[in-house]
Design a binder for these strands. Structure first.
Lengths: 240, 240
DNA sequence: CCTTTTATAGTCATCGAGACTATAAAAGGG
DNA sequence: CCCTTTTATAGTCTCGATGACTATAAAAGG
């Protein structure tokens, strides 16, 4: 907030929210994208988003847009996190737009309704489509980075799962987001040893994919942060 | 970016940047604050900041404001990171302002010049002054959280130090930001065992505080991220 | 010379985690 | 019904990271 507020001239900007809505389907990370109907970038895929209303916070606007685009009824419980704000002068060729980006993690999603003015909305595998409109490639990549880090330190992975899930499903989330395979017994040991990460659903089991032994079901635990964190295998440099 | 761009009405907003400029002085975390000269919140301390110019990105504006407020000449090399954007409708009583917050880590600082229109600018110990103007208490707390986490995963602590520093000085940074005491031999072992964190300055030593054995000098290493991270001692729940 | 202060070297035990093997419980095919 | 396949779960072994702690070195000050 500027102290010399009243002495300065200031320029008004358009403020929007952009959403990176992520899910894991069949062990593959997917993103919700909309197809642009008009110039600029007509025919290109873009992240859903929209303008802030006059008396909305960015968080409120993001949740409203999320409900409109996904058609989900209970948007309240969803994992929605502000990731970063993009304000480069040339990022929209038409006018000066400052965009607050959000990342939403949703469980097994319904097909998006092409709500409102959307030309077409689809779940697409992460990284499967060419360059997105505007600077949305970078926004999406930043969101992906943050989610990967959040899986290490929080139980955010449970946001990708239904209310009751197996440890195999939870592991698939980690593998899909990180792009690495994990050892199943070690993953299981680590998750169960972390207090508050998951809690068992007594006496419940589910056949995972039709074949094999039924897996026990778990719910998300009360712990927000994981101690110690669940670090991904040596992402860069030497594994020390 | 909204796809139904042209069909929507949108409201223009004022966009500003707010800066949490942090440093460590004598082992104590300090924040750069300015005293407001006018209503609202006249006489209260606030974070420095200002409006975006018409063709500036938020990053550029933040760096410009940083130079103006601190009087530092080489703002280019400073550690400046976007932290979060604040957009609650009532956060400024005069008008609708969306603020992009940044956190800057600076080494042993010069006294701030009360540059431009600033009533007064001072380095104050973190948490030593009462409620700040606007929502700056929360912005500052969020910045502090992020810096604490960044110390775990990156060599950001070196941004608080002069180009050549002792391991004791580096440890003081960690202790000041985290608010915990660390075991000196263990800290030393951990830092030196992390590849790329610091590299020794051959044959150089400095008397740390006048007394005691002179300490070897180190420079910041090339590694951006630390592997494995330097986790702070059991911050919550059980230490596992 | 002795005390104080700070830096640096090392020791020991414990815990986490990667790699791996073994067993249990289901489906499917003969 | 037996046998193979598939997946879940239990357990073992080893190594490395780290917390707690002790010991030595090199300076200043009395």
């Amino acid at each position: 907030m500027p102290h010399g507020y009243d002495k300065h001239a200031y320029e008004p900007f358009a403020v929007t929210v952009d959403l990176a809505v992520l899910t894991v389907r069949q062990g593959v990370l997917h993103v919700l994208l909309v197809e642009r109907g008009q110039e600029p970038y007509a025919g290109r895929w873009a992240l859903p988003g929209g303008f802030l209303l006059p008396d909305e916070s960015a968080e409120t606007a993001a949740r409203r847009e999320l409900a409109e685009e996904t058609g989900l009824d209970d948007v309240c419980g969803l994992d929605l996190e502000q990731s970063r704000t993009y304000s480069e002068p040339g990022r929209d060729p038409r006018m000066r737009v400052v965009s607050v980006a959000f990342t939403a993690l949703v469980p097994d999603p319904p097909e998006p309704r092409g709500g409102g003015d959307a030309a077409r909305a689809r779940w697409l595998p992460y990284g499967s489509v060419g360059p997105l409109a505007f600077d949305h490639d970078r926004i999406l990549a930043d969101a992906h980075d943050r989610v990967g880090a959040r899986l290490e330190n929080t139980h955010a992975a449970t946001a990708f799962c239904p209310p009751e899930f197996t440890l195999g499903e939870l592991q698939q989330v980690y593998e899909a987001v990180w792009g690495t395979a994990l050892d199943r017994p070690n993953f299981r040991r680590k998750v169960l040893a972390t207090p508050g990460f998951v809690e068992p659903v007594p006496g419940a089991a589910r056949l995972t994919a039709g074949r094999g032994k039924p897996a026990a079901l778990y719910r998300a635990g009360p712990a927000a942060a994981l101690h110690p964190p669940l670090l991904r295998p040596s992402r860069e440099g030497s594994p020390a």
